[in-house]
Simulated assay, not measured.
Amino acid sequence: MVNFVSMQNPKVSVLIPFKNTEEFLSECISSIIDQTYQNWEVLAVNDGSDDNSCQIMDHYANHDSRITVLQNEGQGIIHALRTAYSKSNGSLITRMDSDDMMTPNKLQLMTTALLKNGLGHVALGKVSYFSKEGVSNGYKSYEKWLNRLSEKGTNFSEIYKECVIPSPCWMVHRSDLDKAKAFTPDQYPEDYDLAFRFYEKQFKCIPSENVLHYWRDYQDRTSRTSEHYAQNYFLDLKMHYFLKLDHDKNRPLVLWGAGKKGKNIAKILVEQGVPFFWLCNNQQKIGKIIYGQHMLSYKHLPQLNRPQVIVTVANKEAQEFIKEHLQGMNMLLAEDYFLFC
């Protein structure tokens, strides 16, 4: 018989890889201890720290039995997440970064959302970047874009643009995480890869109007310094999943844009032998041959039968023109055209 209390008050496993974040750990763990929802466990995995991070985590573990400190069974953040997950017992799973902070109601709101919506859903929250040095325009723009999607739960509609699931601000049912292969793949960036696997399993994002996570930015943050988060990793991941999940071989594939990203995508398509039409609205490039492909005018698009379009143009004004043009042809976002920047 299923325990009714456990159904209404399930244990949440919080997975926290940490490495040399002694300056921020106390704020992070305190924000978890202060949660309004108290049925949680923390699996904190040391990934080779050489500062006082382990001592700080041990101190908290000695004073709160819900906190367990582990040593990474491998090396790197993916192995740390695997280690944490293998030792976890919660029916709901979330990830936390050791340099960030939760709002006091984060676990309560996400748990409530999952219990209300059931399996096949991802609970999200809006995020807020902060930094001693001030938040850059790039991060402000990402925050605004990500929160706009999370408010409506339409995150997956723009999944090829950037990672649409904030790595430290999601929660899912354990069985759903297993269904999506959890932290099994050795694929970086690991948060983006997991988002694609949620998308592949057709999970639905639960809309959220609340800021639930304070995302710290600083120069030594792993996402800024590790080679695993270089742009080529992101682009290779996008193309892998697009060709696997959304590319229809029975429809003509169109690449719109001949800037740096457009050329990189064209190179991938050529190398993999995927046929495509290459369009742009830059008069100086129309008619040129690049990577053996003839650059066509965007006005060629209506001549193609039910094309799929990859949009690689980053300029906001140009992108609005492109979206209006495609919508004028009754093309739908995430079905007929896909934003890659």
Rank of each mutant, 00 (worst) to 15 (best):
V2L: 15
V2P: 15
N3F: 06
N3E: 12
N9W: 11
P10W: 05
K11Y: 08
I16K: 02
F24Y: 14
L25A: 09
I32P: 03
Y37Q: 04
L43M: 13
G48V: 03
G48E: 08
S53M: 03
A61N: 13
L81K: 00
R82G: 00
A84P: 03
Y85T: 07
S86K: 15
S86L: 09
S86A: 11
K87Y: 12
K87R: 11
L92V: 05
R95T: 04
R95C: 09
D97A: 06
S98G: 07
M102I: 03
Q108F: 15
T111R: 05
A123S: 10
L124A: 02
S131C: 00
S131E: 05
Y139W: 08
K140D: 05
E143W: 02
L149H: 02
N155M: 04
S157M: 14
E158Y: 06
K161V: 08
I165S: 00
P166R: 00
W170S: 02
L177D: 05
D178K: 04
D178P: 00
K179F: 01
Q187K: 12
Y188M: 13
K201G: 06
F203W: 14
E209Y: 12
V211P: 07
H213Y: 14
H213S: 04
Y214F: 13
Q219A: 03
S223V: 13
T225H: 03
E227D: 15
Y229G: 00
Q231L: 14
Q231A: 05
N232C: 13
D236S: 14
K238G: 10
H240Q: 11
L245D: 01
K249M: 13
V254Q: 06
L255V: 12
G262N: 08
Q272A: 01
V274E: 02
L279M: 11
N282K: 15
K285V: 12
K285E: 14
L296H: 13
I310Y: 11
F321K: 15
E324M: 08
E324L: 07
Q327Y: 02
G328Q: 10
M329C: 04
L333V: 05
